[in-house]
Write a protein that binds this DNA or RNA. Structure first.
Length: 298
DNA sequence: CCCCAGGTTAACG
DNA sequence: CGTTAACATGGG
């Protein structure tokens, strides 16, 4: 089966191959599979499992095909189209960022090297929060391992042509899960408790992406900070990767600190205060600056 | 054994 | 308020 579902027009300053390079950054990623031409991902649409493939043949339009499962209804297709647009931040005009980056000593070379890179988002709030929580204070390889453990234990799997695809578990799955069960997957007590708290909040509707999107960036920040186990880094990270807020800036991020240290030739890591001072010249595009700076680490 | 890794909290002055 | 210690886990 290889049904064309729809195609999406692509904006200026978008390069699928460059975004694909980002998606390929870890062989430990469990929520999608990449290859030379595209990315394949399992989705649950209207409760129906489907395997979706994204490619950009010819470079002008994104082609969305169905590899496995029933052809989705039209509202499910609309949901999928919106999800993909958010995944690759397709609706944003990047021209202002590029004008800024080309005149910037740190970003200039990165913008040239990764021209067309968009912030690859995590449109699902629960998944984004979990990914941030799992990534707190551990190296990325271990964070990926934790995500895989959580996904394999609670997510749904689909076997297709010799590969296993997973959907990240929904928050409702964790309703009766005790903390110790997550600790057995190598989450710390703190991570386990925060994941469960976030699952309960999200499943009940007390916390939702829609609600956060209706708030100002500052108010969304405060709302996220109310959750115990969610600090400034997690909050900024979620604003950046899930709430599509280009002004989010995780100033305490060790990866960001290392990238700036390396690119600026410093003999030590910059402090968060120094990063905030540096970021003033990126006004409004701090999240994009961060995302491009992260690319210097791989 | 020590330090680091895409931090957060609670307890001090 | 700003600073510091404690937390918890795997890798180098």
């Amino acid at each position: 089966m290889n049904d064309l579902l729809f195609e999406l027009p692509l904006p200026e300053l978008f390069d699928f191959d460059v975004c694909l390079e980002y998606l390929k950054r870890s062989p430990l990623e469990c929520l999608y599979r990449t290859d030379q031409e595209g990315v394949t991902r399992y989705f649950k649409l209207d409760n129906h499992p489907v395997l979706i493939r994204l490619t950009v043949p010819g470079g002008s339009r994104m082609r969305v095909t169905l590899l496995h499962g029933a052809i989705p209804a039209s509202d499910a297709l609309e949901w999928l189209a919106r999800y993909i647009a958010e995944w690759f931040d397709l609706d944003r005009d990047l021209a202002p960022f590029y004008r800024l980056a080309e005149a910037d000593p740190l970003l200039g070379p990165l913008a040239a090297q990764h021209r067309g890179l968009r912030i690859v988002g995590i449109p699902d709030l629960f998944e984004a929060l979990c990914w941030a929580i799992l990534g707190q204070q551990v190296n990325l390889a271990f964070a990926y391992r934790l995500k895989r453990q959580l996904t394999a234990a609670y997510g749904e799997a689909l076997e297709w042509e010799g590969h296993t695809y997973y959907a990240f578990p929904g928050p409702e799955v964790f309703a009766e899960v005790p903390q110790e069960e997550l600790c057995a997957l190598q989450l710390t007590r703190s991570k386990a408790r925060t994941v469960l708290d976030v699952a309960a909040l999200t499943a009940s509707g007390a916390l939702s992406r829609e609600e956060l999107l209706n708030l100002s960036p500052e108010a969304a920040e405060q709302r996220l900070l109310q959750i115990r186990g969610v600090g400034p880094w997690t909050s900024q990270y979620v604003r950046m990767r899930c709430l599509d807020d280009p002004s989010a800036f995780p100033a305490g991020d060790v990866g960001l600190q290392n990238a700036v240290k390396f690119l600026a030739g410093m003999d030590r890591k910059p402090t968060p205060a120094e990063l905030l001072a540096l970021a003033e010249r990126w006004g409004g595009w701090e999240a994009y600056a961060t995302f491009y700076l992260w690319r210097a680490l791989y």
